[in-house]
Design a protein around this nucleic acid. Structure first.
Lengths: 235, 235
DNA sequence: CGACGGGTTGAAGTAAATCAATAGGGGTGG
DNA sequence: CCACCCCTATTGATTTACTTCAACCCGTCG
């Protein structure tokens, strides 16, 4: 659980496992970091905002995304408790962020963190590490979106979630999907219909069960790995 | 030219415009940072390597990519002179890197840079800034790969290159393509045939000329922007 | 010269998108 | 408690954008 390499396929949130926001933000004045509650679909920030803030997810799940003028949406990352958001936003990263499930989020002004860095230089390195991890996990997402088939995309996605919940070496796993089919589609670069069809085909293959639409039970992790084309180690 | 926001559509290399590797690496002992010459297609590093190094492109163009077990390739970024590579590689980012055109690349052991950071803490912040910019430009790439049509993908790609060469506000632009159609295809997540077809359709639309296969002349930047669906500002 | 690597173009096939109908689930109000 | 609605998900039928397969061109190099 402590090594990034334990999550080769993790979502853009594996930073939690290695280095939580809490770790980076420890020692910051609490008055400078107010906590906000977000209901599902509520916006944390949008493209237009100045973006002088970092955020840490305390509870629930949020996602950051970009919208094209005709409404097409690409979700860039899902963020779970412990994840930091906002690194990169100072410099022209234009994206929005909203709650996927009810959430609690702490915000920290960049300026406050900058001041802290002056007195505790190791903070910058920790922040660098968080950015580094985000970058690394983004690469997985890239291969997934750019080069994988619909089945492989969904399998990779479920595999990453399963590993996040149940670790790497379990033979089966059960977990909740906080996001809707639409969210998954916009993360993987496909349509809800295709997502739905791939879910049922995975079910019919016996790889997963869907007791409810929001609950996934992976019956055969190994098969799921095969389908995910997750052979990211053998080459 | 000095603001990241001037390159909303830049490739994963806009860092050059804002903060060159030279800037970050200034003052490092030259003996610690040997320069290597790479011929086209020569490998700088591959997935298996330990990855204890940062690299700075001095000349030419390189690309980093990931390969799936059956040979499918996704190019993650093209890197031009001034760009830094290797941030994020310490922590489980498994990708390879090779020269797209003959190149000169300087390598710096992470350990050396780490030592420098001890004495000059502001280095960590500069590095953070580089990571930040890489992250931001990666988001553009994401929307492109995940949600755009073939024409929009190619238009976005050419637009980014045109802006890099000729700035933001020119009405026309001419530049070289150091990479092959295959490289472009693997960057945009499509096939060479589709890339080729979209090139000719852009040509027939009068948006671009192709005096040679490696030379692009953009006749109408505005139209190209339209086609790129680059309305990343109006929403 | 022939071979080879890149590029373009054409014809045919297909995975996924689109269009469209139906079903389920959770909450509200009559 | 049932009826209704709204939102989300599933499933089916059809279309299409892109891929795949294949031929061909062109410049370079041994």
């Amino acid at each position: 659980m402590l090594q990034a390499t334990a999550f080769p396929n993790a979502l853009d949130n594996s930073s939690a496992a290695v280095l939580s926001g809490i770790d980076v933000l420890a020692g910051l004045d609490d008055r400078q970091s107010p906590v906000r509650r977000l209901a599902r679909h509520e916006t944390l920030f949008s493209e237009g905002d100045e973006g002088g803030k970092y955020y840490e997810v305390l509870e629930g799940v949020v996602c950051s995304f970009r919208i094209l003028h005709d409404g097409r949406r690409q979700i860039l990352s899902f963020n779970y408790p412990g994840d930091m958001i906002g690194i990169g936003h100072e410099l022209g990263c234009k994206c929005s962020c909203e709650a996927v499930a009810d959430a609690r989020v702490r915000s920290i002004p960049v300026s406050a963190l900058d001041r802290s860095i002056k007195t505790r230089p190791e903070l910058a390195r920790k922040l660098l590490k968080v950015a580094t991890i985000e970058l690394a996990s983004m690469h997985d997402h890239f291969v997934m979106v750019g080069r994988k088939s619909a089945t492989e995309k969904l399998a990779s996605f479920l595999l990453a979630l399963a590993r996040r919940e149940c670790g790497d070496d379990a033979g089966t796993a059960t977990f909740q999907l906080p996001m809707t089919r639409t969210d998954i589609a916009d993360f993987l670069g496909m349509t809800i219909e295709t997502v739905s069809r791939r879910f049922t085909s995975l079910r019919k293959l016996g790889v997963i069960d869907l007791p409810q639409t929001t609950t996934v039970h992976v019956r055969d992790m190994f098969l799921l790995e095969e389908l995910a084309d997750s052979n990211e180690d053998d080459c």
